[in-house]
Design a protein around this nucleic acid. Structure first.
Ligand code: FES
Ligand code: FES
Lengths: 145, 145
DNA sequence: TTAATAAAGGACATATTTATCCGTTATTAA
DNA sequence: TTAATAACGGATAAATATGTCCTTTATTAA
């Protein structure tokens, strides 16, 4: 579904959002450890998220990554997915044809677009804030096993 | 969403199903041409579909691939996807964690499983027969642009 | 001003997916 | 029985995704 990069990116963003709620800036190492992600690979992904203005970063001692409190409620999963995997997940034909549209639909088109739209809506409706809150309430977990 | 192999596999299966409705056995070359797929790669995928008893093959002159008429209505997209991509699409955690279950859900779990189930149902409900019929009625197309 | 810290970024390494090539095997028709 | 045909299957190649390493740059605190 999502690329590994995207998976790590979402995990990292959620972790940063949680910590930022208590004004704690987190380092690359912390993020990688707490989200079970490879350190160096995560570094690249975080750079991309910074460039896309999803997370903020600060160099030097006491530096690290953060998400301004006021921002977490506005960041949607779709923003992260878009920054890392692009918009192919919303637009690509299920059978891999170049164009996907109602004009010349592939055999899967109508059934597939329903599923795709379902996914799109879910990603567009879900904010980092709400995911962080779930975790803080113990209803979900950022590290499994 | 699906691997390229799976995309080609679905395309090929639909094409074979259509031709088999008029008792025409099709060759690898025909399939590749009519579904815009790479010949040699498609060969491998067809082998896998044969082994999984989804399509039938016959060597030698007048040989080729076919799907017994009585079978097309019973073959579901899920069978093809399962044969090529396995069941990861139905089971894998959206954030890439090893186990996905309600016991220890990741932050995306509940929202993601809805989408995933949606996809699973679609694939399990859709038969090759109905996709072939859509094409024959001119409602969808197996070759685009 | 200096030393320590932490992200940024480029080059490189590995794994997986996608794709090709070619000899072998089975089948058919002449 | 022979020649032609078409799938089968193994080896290999190319492309992409995943992951590492190391040097540079910015920031901070002493
Ligand atoms: S054309 Fe294939 S999903 Fe739309
Ligand atoms: S645990 Fe992540 S989707 Fe179920």
């Amino acid at each position: 579904m999502f690329s590994k990069a995207c998976e790590y990116g979402i995990r990292a963003s959620i972790f940063i959002a949680i910590k930022s709620r208590s004004d704690i800036r987190v380092s690359l190492k912390d993020i990688a450890r707490e989200t079970d992600s490879p350190v160096s690979f995560t570094a690249k992904i975080l750079q991309r998220l910074v460039k896309n203005n999803i997370i903020d970063s600060l160099k030097g001692p006491n530096g690290g990554f953060e998400i301004k409190k006021s921002k977490a409620g506005k960041i949607r999963l779709s923003h992260i997915v878009n920054a890392i995997d692009g918009d192919s997940i919303y637009k690509k034909c299920g059978l891999g044809f170049r164009n996907c549209n109602n004009k010349k639909p592939c055999p899967l088109h109508y059934k597939f677009t329903v599923v795709r739209e379902n996914l799109r809506k879910m990603l567009e409706e879900t904010t980092l804030l709400e995911l962080s809150e779930d975790i803080e309430r113990g209803q979900s977990f950022l590290k499994i096993n």
